[in-house]
């Protein structure tokens, strides 16, 4: 596959009265052609800074970026025609209508104005096209922002939180739109906090924390790489569940008892479980890995899971904890 977007070693430093802050600290990302790529990270992790830097709004301190095989920001004016983007919340001049707003952008970008009607129709704003943008709800502005990004018929579509303010129907429409665009050959980079959506829509993801990439790959790979290592163990009916659990605990396993099964939390080698139990004439009827979802992976990798009694601050995140566990 060809990479539509490549970022390596991207650095951005902000100097303030409180000292130096690294918004991006050697960040890397690759987005392959034709994919819907999720870009995840906690608040303040550097997602928007990355997108702004990529689009020439912020100057990086170091690093290399390329869009459609061309170095940016040097060749950004040439590739901008191929890139549709919305960054952060949708922002438009409120006194213009949606139609005027898009037709002005079309003029500025040398795009045929006839496309305006079709993109407004695509995002569901056709009947409200002649109303001033300041009368729009957040969700409608979001739709307009997506329309502005689609106006150019881009090869790469970059959307920062496109589902912000959308109603459930709008979110579903947006999901379908993303898939349709991807099926038509467009590459979509999607930054979002709605992890369930990302898991549903995206082919691949990159997770950023504290300005660094903490993981990337296809969604299934990332989930597989970051499963908890826990396994669900079910025994033959009538076997003493408590006794079996105590046996495993004595060997160092972290066992959590449920009604008719138990889970072993640090089972990096599940064969040990069957061996230990079989030695005591206890036979396992089900041994399945407990699968993680993207939210679990995100919280684990970014260290942003809520901790009871603590108020996590925006910049607080932990990089991936050491792996490995009982049984290895």
């Amino acid at each position: 596959m060809t990479a539509v977007l490549e970022i390596s070693g991207l650095r951005k430093t902000y100097r303030g009265r409180k000292g130096v802050r690294n918004a991006l600290d050697g960040f890397d990302m690759v987005v392959e052609a034709g994919q819907v790529h999720g870009f995840l990270g906690p608040n303040g992790s550097g997602k928007t800074t990355t997108l702004r830097t990529l689009l020439g709004l912020i100057k990086p301190n170091d690093g290399r970026m390329a869009i459609l095989g061309r170095e940016v920001p040097r060749h950004l004016p040439e590739v901008a025609r191929e890139v549709g983007a919305i960054v952060e919340s949708p922002q438009f001049f409120g006194n213009f209508t949606a139609e005027t707003t898009l037709s002005l952008l079309a003029d500025a970008g040398g795009v045929n104005r006839n496309r305006v009607v079709s993109v407004l129709d695509l995002v569901g704003l056709r009947d409200r096209a002649k109303e001033r943008v300041k009368t729009y709800s957040l969700g409608m502005k979001q739709r307009l922002a997506v329309a502005s990004a689609l106006l150019k018929e881009p090869k790469l579509l970059i959307l920062d939180e496109p589902a912000n303010g959308l109603d459930p129907g709008g979110i579903r429409e947006m999901r379908t739109l993303m898939r349709d665009l991807s099926d038509s050959g467009m590459t979509v980079l999607l930054s979002s906090h709605i992890l369930g959506e990302i898991q549903l829509i995206c082919d691949s993801v990159t997770i950023i924390s504290a300005g660094k990439r903490v993981t990337s790959g296809s969604v299934s790979e990332v989930l597989a790489q970051h499963t908890s290592g826990a396994v669900k163990v079910r025994l033959e009916p009538g076997v003493d569940l408590m006794g079996a659990a105590q046996l495993l605990r004595a060997a160092g396993a972290q066992v959590a008892l449920e009604k008719d099964y138990f889970t072993v939390g640090n089972a990096s080698n599940p064969a040990q479980i069957t061996k230990l139990l079989a030695d005591q004439q206890i036979y396992v009827s089900e041994l399945t890995p407990v699968s993680a979802d993207l939210e679990d992976v995100f919280l684990e990798l970014t260290g942003t899971a809520p901790v009871e009694g603590q108020n996590r601050q925006v910049d607080q995140s932990a990089m991936t904890a050491g792996k490995g566990g009982w049984g290895q």
Partner: peptide, 11 residues
């Protein structure tokens, strides 16, 4: 924010 939008089109 219109200027930012414009710069996304004409960087």
């Amino acid at each position: 924010g219109g200027m930012m939008n414009l710069l996304l089109w004409r960087p």
